[in-house]
């Protein structure tokens, strides 16, 4: 499988990259890890005329806690998340998700920025970001702007990133208090995209009352979605089995899966319910 011909530039700075994006117009694309884009180009599902490779731009890969946020540079590779101490000690949701994304070779290249910017509801990070209430920093010639993850996904392969812009950073409210997070997806075999996936973030106060809940769903809606009714059912509750069951039921009702080879609508709703329940429990355990 071979892509259509295209041009290629490898800018050394963001400014150079913006200039190239403007110069090459709408049919140019950013190349990050390349592990979503290149496979699509090889199958000729995508045919950008020019690739702007942002791998040589310094300063886009980091994981740090700063100003009350966990900040992740857009070019941070999946493998860096897997191996980060900050992540594995306080944000296990990433550890859960990374292990289930593709395979080690793909994770050596795939970036978190690309995973989100691809705008595919089948990818795992979008749901994780929704559960975490992330903000996305988008940069361009006119400066930087910050977009809530809730406003980020516009449609199939379209996001808040406009032409000429680059997603540069992901900001997540830092873990505090009794905070727990978890992710799981059902997959047909290891490395597969999700049949259904659920990301859960929970915070409880000292009395065990849920003060915050974030629930994101993978591949059960046209765009990555947040299970708002489920979150509402949890906040303020003691997270009893009944509360959790209700949240699971809402998530299953509110998602909008399509029938395909991975399963029919009914099965996917069922999975959402089961996995939501399990992930709330896992997050809760981690919060304690």
């Amino acid at each position: 499988m071979i892509a259509e011909p295209f041009g290629y530039s490898s800018p050394q700075s963001l400014d150079e990259a913006y200039a190239l994006l403007h110069e090459h117009g709408d049919d140019a694309k950013i190349l990050a890890g390349g592990h979503s884009l290149i496979p699509m180009m090889k199958l000729r599902f995508a045919a950008p005329t020019h690739l702007i490779d942002i791998n040589k731009i310094p300063g886009l890969s980091y994981i740090k806690e700063e100003d009350g946020f966990l900040k992740i540079g857009a070019m941070t590779r999946e493998v860096d998340l897997e191996e980060s101490d900050i992540i594995s000690s306080r944000y296990q949701i990433f550890t859960d998700a990374s292990k289930l994304i593709a395979d080690p070779q793909v994770r050596n290249f795939g970036t978190i920025g690309g995973n989100i910017a691809h705008g595919d509801a089948a990818n795992d990070h979008p749901a994780v970001m929704m559960a975490l209430d992330a903000e996305v920093e988008i940069s361009g010639q006119d400066g930087k702007r910050s977009v809530s993850i809730n406003e980020f996904f516009h449609g199939f392969y379209t996001t808040a990133v406009q032409h000429g812009e680059i997603l540069t950073e992901i900001r997540i409210p830092a873990a505090s208090g009794h905070f727990g997070s978890a992710y799981h997806k059902a997959e047909r075999k290891v490395g597969d995209y999700a049949t259904a996936g659920v990301a859960v973030v929970i915070r409880v106060d000292d009395g065990g009352i849920c003060t915050k809940a974030g629930i994101g769903l993978t591949n059960v809606n046209a765009v990555p979605m947040r299970a708002i009714r489920s979150e509402e059912a949890l906040v303020g509750s003691m997270l009893s089995a009944g509360d959790i069951a209700k949240a699971a039921q809402y998530a299953a009702e509110d998602c909008n899966p399509s029938s395909d080879l991975r399963g029919d609508e009914d099965y996917k709703r069922h999975l959402v319910s089961v996995i939501t329940k399990r992930m709330i429990n896992r997050a809760l355990e981690r919060a304690k």
Partner: peptide, 27 residues
């Protein structure tokens, strides 16, 4: 895991290694 699946119009629905599920060391 494996089965070649066609729809009524004669399209193969899983003609790549993305959907034709050859087991890995995990399965």
């Amino acid at each position: 895991y494996e089965e070649l699946i066609y729809d009524e119009a004669g399209n193969i629905l899983n003609g790549t290694f993305m959907d034709y599920l050859v087991p890995t060391a995990v399965e």
